[in-house]
Amino acid sequence: MSRAKRRVPFWDNARFACIVLVVLGHATQRLTYDSDIALGLYLVVYAFHMPAFAIISGYFSKSDAPSKRQMARVITDILVPYVIFEGIWTLTKWLVEGQANPNLTEPSWTLWFLLALGIFRLVLPYLALLRWPLLWTLAISIGAGYLPNVDSTFSLSRTLGLLPFFTLGWWLREHDIVDRLRLLRDRPWWVFVVGGGLFTVAGFVAWVFIDEFRAMNLREWLFYDANYSSIGGTQWWAGGVRLALMAVAIVLSAAFFALVPRRTHFWTHFGQYTMYVYLLHSFVLYPFRESGVLRNLDPTWLWLPIVIVLSVLIALGLATKPVRTVFRPLIEPRPGWLFSDPMLAGREGRRSDPTGSRRPREAPRVLPADPRQNG
């Protein structure tokens, strides 16, 4: 089979590992108020997991002038699901909390990433025209933090903050870095040691300096969701903090990719359905987060592993076929009536995850790994 049609297990493994970290980060959030260990884990996860997701999304994005079908997919795969799930969240909050404030300009919880993906796709062809696009997006990300009017409206603050990672992913593909350096083929033993060592160091630093990180409100810095002054960065050099955090994100993302399995596993094909997990897991976690059952859990050494295991199980469960069958009309809608040419809405079975995972018409089938990818 040609290279263009053969799925590379690594990328599906990386997608699924990222989405597990997304669930884990949200699941442990309430534990961080009562446990330094949980907060340390939370900070390490948030230091890189969304940047890594943005890198993957950028790697599979095209900078060419979009075709009509590609433009339609921004609407069907991103904008329409965004409107649908904003409506569902408004109804949920009204039923549970007795009040709701419908506002499409303010994304609910996890929905900000949908808007970010849409904006990434729209601006990439323009960025590709520039010399040094990585430097421009880096300047945009750092500069946006100084502007108080760049906020969570249409998730603009996070979009601009994470734009360099998305652009980096595209740049790696554009310059064929992964193939030229044989990054998916050769993985000597020391790569595992270095990758594991980097996460060990990150965990150790998070543990030792946990009080300092709590005092500086580090978690807010890792969200890329607020201007510097609103989270305590009133000094002129506050942009240097973001620059340092972005460097840490790239290093930890590289370590993460180095540790991601290259071979096919039973969970590999779930990496094609990360958007199901992303959009649905918040509804699974919502009652636990809001009821307070995740507060004051002691001892941490018992409850934290339980939460980790449950996060993995939630991600696995939400990517299964029965769940996809039930929720496909909401997550992968086919609004042919919306277009002058109904065919632009796409046909069943030929869809692409907004993060870049194209799925075949037939039932998903992952080919065996290339023997050269062992390691």
Rank of each mutant, 00 (worst) to 15 (best):
M1F: 12
M1C: 09
S2G: 11
F10K: 01
F10L: 02
A14T: 04
A14F: 01
V23F: 07
H26K: 03
Q29A: 14
Q29C: 12
T32D: 08
D36K: 06
L39A: 12
F53Y: 15
A54W: 03
A54N: 10
A54I: 04
A54K: 06
R69F: 10
I84W: 02
E86K: 02
W89Q: 01
Q99W: 08
Q99M: 10
P102C: 00
P107A: 02
G118M: 03
G118I: 00
P125V: 06
W132V: 13
G143Q: 11
G145P: 02
Y146L: 11
P148E: 12
S152D: 00
L156N: 01
R158L: 06
G161L: 05
W170E: 07
P188T: 08
L198V: 11
A202H: 05
V205Y: 11
W207C: 05
E212K: 09
F213H: 08
F223P: 02
Y228S: 00
G233D: 03
T234F: 07
A244H: 11
A249H: 05
I250T: 15
V251S: 04
A254P: 00
A254V: 09
L259T: 05
H269Y: 10
Y276S: 06
L279M: 02
S282L: 09
P287S: 05
P287L: 04
S291E: 11
I306D: 07
I306K: 01
L310P: 04
L310D: 08
L313M: 14
L316E: 10
V323F: 07
T325N: 15
R328K: 15
P333C: 00
P335T: 01
S352R: 15
D370W: 08
N374Y: 13
G375E: 01
